[in-house]
């Protein structure tokens, strides 16, 4: 009786902690970028201050906004939390492990995109339309690449369940597998594209000619915008945690149980996520934004690398 309850409580905590910490990671990335640019930076807590400011603003809704537009922020946040609930973190057993696997995870991300573009199309503005078609271009090329990278890992592990993949990889380390290297490369490219980071999209831009993700959320204000920003931070963390499970499984406790193993896993993965944030900041500082016409080439590369990974996996055998 107690064991399932403890598991449930642990699962909820395991989901709640990343949800709460997602803006912190965004702040860390921003701080690293500031340091690299020889600025002092606003501190790692800046996203929280931004969120607080936005939450306190008076609610403002554009004219002609329908249900889809109004429900979108809450739905984005909810889907982000659901996705986090699927990923094993400290105890290696995610909250929703019974109901899903990597394919469902990509399905949830696809649903989030489906809703967000429909919401942007709801108003019928020129910028919204641009945002929709650009997001769809990025998404419809990045999603297959992501799915193929995940399929490669799933083939290597022999299961598509994330907890199962994590368990297999901690028991039989496959770190030097060539197919996983391809998958990791494709995954990194997709992470950049799907989260609207440089060089695909500039998260700080409001220049109409180049923005992709910003064009979708241009009409949001106040609490709605805060939820969307938070959901964006959660999505970035979802990708980071997914990367940890697939390509750095030694951070997970594996077969070990008990508070010490959980603490070790928490510290290790936290440290690794901080390091990857710093790496992302370096990449973003070092690269310029791609011209929109060059973005398909970037994404096609990701797709082909992912396909190559799958081919290598199937040809090289288990």
């Amino acid at each position: 009786m107690t064991a399932p309850l403890v598991r449930l409580a642990l699962g909820i905590v395991e989901t709640a902690v990343p949800v709460a910490a997602a803006p912190l990671w965004l702040g860390w990335i921003g701080q690293c970028r500031a340091w690299l640019l020889n600025r002092r930076g606003p501190g790692v807590l800046q996203p929280y201050r931004d969120l607080r400011k936005l939450f306190l603003k008076a609610p403002l809704v554009p004219e002609g906004a329908g249900v889809l537009f109004r429900i979108n922020p809450a739905l984005q946040w909810t889907l982000g939390v659901l996705a986090l609930g699927l990923i094993p973190f400290c105890s290696a057993v995610p909250l929703l492990a019974q109901d899903s696997d990597v394919i469902v995870l990509t399905g949830i991300l696809a649903t989030a995109r489906f809703v967000s573009v429909l919401a942007a199309g709801d108003l019928g503005t020129a910028f919204g339309g641009l945002g929709v078609r650009r997001t769809l271009l990025v998404g419809s090329l990045a999603e297959p690449a992501l799915l193929l990278a995940l399929m490669t890992a799933a083939l290597a592990a022999g299961t598509t369940s994330l907890a199962g993949i994590a368990r297999t990889f901690t028991v039989h380390p496959l770190v030097l597998d060539p197919s996983l290297a391809f998958a990791a490369a494709a995954f990194a490219l997709v992470l950049v594209a799907e989260n609207a980071r440089l060089p695909v999209d500039n998260p700080a831009t409001h220049l109409e000619l180049t923005m992709i993700h910003e064009a979708l959320v241009l009409e949001y204000a106040g609490a709605d915008l805060a939820l969307l920003e938070w959901a964006g931070a959660i999505k970035l963390l979802v990708f980071a945690l997914l990367g940890l499970v697939l390509f750095a499984p030694w951070t997970l406790p594996g077969e070990a149980t008990g508070p010490l193993a959980v603490l070790r896993a928490f510290l290790l993965s936290g440290g690794l996520i901080a390091a990857s944030g710093a790496l992302l900041a370096i990449v973003e500082t070092a690269s310029a934004k791609l011209r929109l016409f060059r973005v398909p080439a970037f994404l096609t590369t990701a797709f082909l690398v992912a396909t190559l990974g799958l081919l290598v996996r199937l040809v090289s055998g288990i």
Binding site: L75, T78, L96, Q98, D99, V104, T160, S161, G164
Partner: peptide
């Protein structure tokens, strides 16, 4: 591989939130 997909708990979870 005994992988499962149950849409109802996901929909319920999202609905409650």
């Amino acid at each position: 591989s005994r992988v499962t997909y149950a849409p109802l708990p996901l929909v319920l979870g999202a609905g409650v939130l």
